[in-house]
């Protein structure tokens, strides 16, 4: 019923924008909390793709929506563990600067 109003490619383009903004923020953020936010943006872009495919190509068995629910679950778990790691790091190094979390780099 929505197939004529908005093409599938429009949703895919919006999701591509969201994903690329997330990748850029993931690489360039200095603040560790912002890195986690960028990961959430990328997961949302993937979810948007899944939902668009589920509506346009798999309208009867909505398997994309089931996958989106699983992705939301994993994202919630990832956010909880990531923020706990961040707190632990902050307690030990007293900074949130990603450039100074280099204990294992060299």
């Amino acid at each position: 019923m929505t197939a004529d109003a908005i093409p599938l490619q429009a949703y895919l383009t919006v999701a591509a924008f969201l994903f690329c903004i997330g990748v850029w923020g993931l690489i360039n953020s200095r603040n560790a909390v912002r890195v986690l936010m960028s990961i959430e943006l990328m997961l949302n872009a993937v979810n948007l793709n899944l939902m668009a495919f589920s509506n346009y190509l798999d309208g009867q068995l909505v398997r994309g929506q089931v996958f989106a629910i699983f992705v939301i679950t994993v994202a919630a778990a990832e956010a909880a563990v990531g923020l706990a790691i961040l707190l632990s790091l902050y307690r030990n190094r007293e900074t949130v600067d990603m450039e100074r979390f280099n204990l294992l780099r060299w």
């Binding site: 019923m1 929505t2 599938l8 798999d58 309208g59 009867q60 909505v62």
Partner: peptide, 14 residues
Amino acid sequence: AFTTPWALPGPTPV
């Protein structure tokens, strides 16, 4: 997204 021949229109959404 624009060059792939998607199988459109798919089945009617529920």
